[in-house]
Amino acid sequence: MYFFLQITLSGIATGAIYGLIAVGYSLTFMTTKVLNFALGMWVMLGGMLTYSLHVEYGLNPLFVLPIVTLVLFALGVVAERFSVFPFLRAGSDVWVMSTLAVGFLMIDLAEIIWGRNPTPVPPFIGKDAIYIGQVSILPQQLLIILVACVMFLALDVFYRRTLLGKAFRAVAHSGDVSGLMGINTRRIQALSYAMASALAGIAGFLVVPLTLAEPQMGTVLGLKAFAIAIIAGLAAPRGILICGLMYGAFEALVSGYLYTGIRDILGFSLMILALFLKPEGVFGRRQEERV
């Protein structure tokens, strides 16, 4: 039982990261039906910036977090303007390739700036495990779970309680009708892309002490987060957190009790099964047209 709880808890921390990235897919999909397929690379950028600011320049993580968030938000605005919007305006699906191209560009640039060698980043809040009975958790893992939960709560409050959040949901339902309300749908679309980029940056900031800082650190994370967003339903942000945590625990249990090698095979098979059985996602709702 102890072993079960231990690996489940570790898995949940990883799952919180997956959830945080996965909700980024949901943010852009809901407003524009666009997916930033390179979101994992944005996670990497967040991680590498954290490495530079925290390790190389010795900046306190409390200052690193807002800087990383703002830089990635701003880069998200620029990337959306030049790699997504022109194709959306032309009614083309080429954004699939252009978002990926931006991601690969980021990896190449990261290799030029930081090199290919993985570099450790010390945890932000201590190295000693915290014990809850017999089960232990690293402070960094606890921080990840807490920050991810706070971010999801903030996002939920944003969607449900703020006028801008309600406008996001309105644009998700119909861009045309939202325009009739005086909502600048174009601005909301750009904003959603920038917010997704910033969330990926926060995920990179949180996860880099657990992985290593290196240009490929986000690629697999982004793919798994994509699987989670699909399983939960791209239009179901609340479900994405739950699915993220469960997927993390599932991965950890498969690795702990079976074999690490089949972890991703089972995970991605689960995504295909979910797509087959419920294309709108486990937590998604089928869109109904009312006449």
Partner: peptide, 22 residues
């Protein structure tokens, strides 16, 4: 753009109501 026109003081009630159902 539609939002600019709306902000000038034109409001359309579209065919089929088109409310935000959720």
């Amino acid at each position: 753009a539609a939002h600019e026109i709306a902000n000038l003081g034109l409001a359309l009630v579209p065919e089929g109501r088109q409310l935000f159902p959720e």
